[in-house]
Design a protein around this nucleic acid. Structure first.
Length: 259
DNA sequence: AATGACCCCAACCGCCAGGAA
DNA sequence: GTTCCTGGCGGTTGGGGTCAT
C-alpha cells in the first residue's frame, strides 16, 4: 500500500512511510502520548492528528502483537463479543498486545464467518463471498452504557444500563431494587453473567466450567472497565505495564475453564 | 503466464462524549 | 447554557497480496 494522496487541506493521506513512522515514534517518545493536535507540528509531519494517533495506537506502539491470533485469544474474543457486541476497544483491552483495529479486522474477516456458521437462524441463509452457505447471527449488541462516578454511586445506585436483551434488563432492574445499598460493580456483572451466559456455557463442547465460576471469572476480567485504576497521570509507557497487561494474568484462570 | 475473484488489513471517515472557554 | 475543540470509537473503504482458473 504505497498510494498516498493529499486532502483538500494539503494533509498527506494514505500509507505511512518509514520516515514518517520514525518521526512519529521520536515525537511520542519525547513528549508522550496525548495532545494529538500538537503531534503533527512537533513531529514535523504533514498528517492530521487523527492519522497520527491511529498510526501510533495501531502500529507503532510498543508491545503490539502481530501475526495470527492464538486459539485462546480467539475464544476470548468470541466470548467477549457475545457479551459486549462490537465494542472492540473493550475487547481489545483484554487481549494484551492486540489493538481494537486488529480485533475488529480479525472478527470481520474470520470470526464473523465462523459464528455465522455455528449459530443457525432459519430463513436467514445467505452465501458468503467464499461461497459458503451460512446464516446470519443475532448478535446481542449492548448500547451505550453509563458507568456512574464514585460520587454518584454514593448518592444512588442507579446504574443506567441499556441493553437490547430484555433478559439482561430484568436482571439489572432487579439488581437495582433489591441491592441498592451495595456499592460494587462486581456483583452487577456476576448477576448479569449468571443469566446472560447460560447459552454461552451451553454451547461449550463437553460443558466447560460451571456457570457461576465462569461468571465470576468474566466478572474479574471485566472489572477494570468498570473501576479503572486510580493511578492517573504519569508516564503512559509505565502505566501500560501496570494497568493492563499484568492484571490480565491474574485472570488467566479463564483458560482452565475452556479446556 | 495472464487474469479475475477474493481476502486481508491499514487507514480513513463520521459521529459522539467530555471538557474548556 | 452554548459553542468549540479534542480524543476516542466503530463502521467502512480500497489497495496490495494471494489464490483459483
Amino acid at each position: 500500500m504505497n498510494s498516498t494522496s493529499m486532502s483538500s487541506l494539503g494533509v498527506r493521506k494514505g500509507s505511512w512511510t518509514e520516515q514518517e513512522d520514525l518521526l512519529l515514534r521520536k515525537c511520542i517518545n519525547k513528549y508522550g502520548e496525548g495532545k494529538w493536535h500538537l503531534v503533527p507540528i512537533r513531529a514535523g509531519l504533514n498528517r492530521c492528528r487523527k492519522s497520527c494517533r491511529l498510526r501510533w495506537l495501531n502500529y507503532l506502539r510498543p508491545h503490539i502483537k502481530r501475526g495470527d491470533f492464538a486459539s485462546d485469544e480467539i475464544d476470548l474474543i468470541l466470548r467477549l463479543h457475545k457479551l459486549l457486541g462490537n465494542r472492540w476497544s473493550l475487547i481489545a483491552g483484554r487481549l494484551p498486545g492486540r489493538t481494537a483495529n486488529d480485533v475488529k479486522n480479525y472478527w470481520n474477516t474470520n470470526l464473523l464467518r465462523k459464528v455465522n456458521i455455528t449459530k443457525i437462524v432459519p430463513r436467514e441463509k445467505f452465501k458468503s463471498k467464499r461461497g459458503e452457505i451460512s446464516t446470519k447471527i443475532e448478535i446481542i449488541k449492548p448500547q451505550a452504557r453509563k458507568f456512574i462516578s464514585n460520587t454518584e454511586k454514593n448518592i444512588t445506585n442507579n446504574i443506567v444500563i441499556v441493553d437490547k436483551e430484555e433478559e439482561c434488563k430484568e436482571i439489572i432492574s432487579e439488581k437495582q431494587t433489591r441491592d441498592a445499598s451495595i456499592d460494587n460493580g462486581d456483583e452487577w456483572w456476576a448477576n448479569l453473567l449468571e443469566n446472560c451466559n447460560d447459552d454461552v456455557v451451553e454451547e461449550e463442547e463437553g460443558g466447560g466450567g460451571g456457570v457461576t465460576d465462569y461468571g465470576k471469572t468474566i466478572t474479574s476480567l471485566l472489572h477494570e472497565e468498570i473501576t479503572p485504576p486510580l493511578n492517573g497521570g504519569g508516564n503512559i509507557m509505565q502505566q501500560e505495564q501496570s494497568d493492563g497487561w499484568d492484571d490480565f494474568f491474574v485472570d488467566i484462570d479463564i483458560w482452565d475453564l475452556l479446556n
